[in-house]
């Protein structure tokens, strides 16, 4: 079971995760309007910017984050933005959307000029997240855990970050045990996705370069 304090952390994190999301009108634009390649590029860029702004608002709600050194806050966000973005996008692709919406989204991304070599691992990741049938609580906690990675570049006080990440890991571990009693590997599988995210993050800079050139 979760302690009262752990339950409070979980509710708080989930509420913040649900509250801070990309504005609906922007998401609608992505589905409803037709764009040429340049406008497509601009829209995806605006979405990425919005993703980062939403991520920062969510992160401010993670218990203890605001008390961290200001430059360390930036190092954590810079280091995790891409991973958190892929995690949030994975949720879009695994949710049951109205008929045809997933295809429109996938088509738009495939026609954005990003090279196939980067698109395939991205959709493989979305698929592997989909297989886990993650609950909203797991998404919110995993995002918080990703942000609070103590090994990000330029981080000065790693121990302070570890102290914030550990309780989140424990809440996720217990939550998994409660929700998936017949799948003892579920928690380990979730953490395994973080390793995949690292790989995507690693290739992201390369992907952007190829996209810009294209």
């Amino acid at each position: 079971e979760l302690s009262q304090e752990q339950q409070a952390i979980l509710s708080f994190i989930v509420e913040a995760y649900q509250k801070h999301r990309i504005p609906q009108d922007m998401a609608k634009k992505l589905l409803q309007e037709h764009f040429n390649a340049d406008e497509n590029f601009l829209l995806l860029t605006e979405m990425a910017t919005s993703h980062v702004q939403v991520l920062v608002e969510f992160t401010k709600n993670i218990p203890g984050f605001s008390a961290l050194d200001h430059e360390d806050q930036i190092a954590l966000l810079k280091g995790s933005a891409v991973e958190a973005m892929f995690l949030r996008s994975a949720q879009v692709f695994t949710r049951k959307l109205p008929h045809g919406h997933t295809e429109v989204l996938e088509d738009r991304i495939r026609k954005s000029g990003i090279s196939e070599a980067f698109i395939t691992p991205m959709f493989n990741f979305y698929k592997s997240i989909g297989e886990l049938q993650m609950m909203q609580e797991e998404h919110a906690l995993l995002t918080a855990i990703t942000i609070l990675s103590p090994d990000r570049p330029y981080l000065k006080d790693q121990q302070a970050v570890e102290r914030l990440q550990e309780p989140m890991l424990e809440v996720l571990r217990r939550f998994c045990a409660m929700q998936h009693p017949l799948e003892p590997q579920h928690f380990a599988r979730l953490l395994g996705r973080l390793t995949e995210l690292r790989t995507l993050n690693h290739h992201h800079a390369e992907m952007l370069t190829s996209w810009r050139m294209s």
């Binding site: 860029t45 910017t49 980062v52 702004q53 920062v56 608002e57 930036i74 810079k78 933005a81």
Partner: peptide
């Protein structure tokens, strides 16, 4: 537009609460 800003600029602005700029 925000899309011309780098990742760090967007983070710094958002941390300071200047989303409207």
């Amino acid at each position: 537009p925000a899309s011309n800003l780098g990742l760090e600029d967007i983070i710094r602005k958002a941390l300071m609460g200047n989303l409207e700029e």
